[in-house]
Simulated scan of single mutants.
Amino acid sequence: MDKGKVVSLEDRIPKLKEQRRKKANRRLIFLLLLFFLIIVCVIYFQSPLSHVKNIEITGNHLYTYEDLEKMSGINSNTNIWTIKKDKLAEKLKDTGGIKSAKISMAIPNTVHIDVKEYRKIAYFEVKNKFIPLLENGDMLHDRAMTNSPYDAPIIKDMKSEDERVITKIGEELSNLSAEVYNAISEIRYTPKNTDKWHVTIYMNDGNQVLASLSSFSDKMKHYPSIIAQLNTDKKGVIDLEVGSYFKAFESEGEKEE
Rank of each mutant, 00 (worst) to 15 (best):
D2L: 04
G4P: 00
V6M: 01
V6A: 01
D11N: 13
K15P: 01
L16I: 15
K17M: 11
Q19I: 15
R20F: 08
K22R: 08
K23D: 12
K23L: 10
A24D: 06
L28N: 10
F30K: 11
F35N: 11
F36Y: 12
I38L: 09
I38Y: 08
I39W: 08
V40L: 15
F45N: 10
Q46K: 15
P48N: 11
P48H: 10
L49W: 10
H51T: 10
V52Q: 11
V52G: 09
G59C: 08
G59W: 12
G59K: 06
N60H: 12
Y63I: 00
Y63M: 02
E66M: 06
E66Q: 14
E66T: 14
L68D: 04
L68K: 07
E69A: 12
S72F: 11
I74D: 07
N75M: 06
W81V: 13
T82S: 13
K84D: 13
K84E: 05
K84G: 04
D86Y: 13
K91H: 12
D94V: 05
I98V: 09
K99R: 15
S100H: 10
A101C: 13
I103T: 08
M105T: 15
I107R: 03
I107S: 14
P108H: 13
N109Y: 05
N109I: 05
T110C: 06
V111K: 09
H112V: 11
V115N: 02
K116L: 07
E117H: 06
E117S: 06
K120F: 04
A122Y: 09
Y123N: 04
Y123H: 07
F124M: 05
F124D: 08
E125H: 08
V126G: 00
N128V: 14
F130Y: 15
I131A: 01
I131W: 09
P132R: 11
L133D: 05
E135K: 07
E135Y: 07
G137D: 05
M139H: 01
M139Q: 04
M139V: 00
M139K: 04
L140H: 07
H141L: 06
D142S: 11
D142I: 07
S148M: 11
S148E: 15
D151T: 06
D151E: 04
D151N: 12
P153Q: 04
I154L: 03
K159Y: 14
K159W: 07
S160E: 07
E163R: 14
I166L: 12
G170D: 08
E171K: 15
L173F: 13
L173E: 02
N175Y: 14
N175W: 07
S177P: 09
S177M: 12
A178P: 00
E186C: 03
I187L: 09
R188V: 03
K192G: 06
N193P: 13
D195C: 14
H198G: 02
V199A: 04
T200R: 10
I201E: 02
Y202S: 11
N204V: 01
G206Q: 03
Q208C: 03
Q208T: 00
V209G: 10
L210P: 08
A211E: 05
A211Y: 12
A211S: 15
S212W: 12
F216D: 04
S217T: 09
S217Y: 11
M220A: 02
Y223A: 00
Q229F: 07
Q229R: 00
K235A: 01
V242N: 04
S244N: 12
Y245R: 07
Y245I: 10
F246V: 04
A248Q: 00
A248R: 01
G253T: 13
E256N: 06
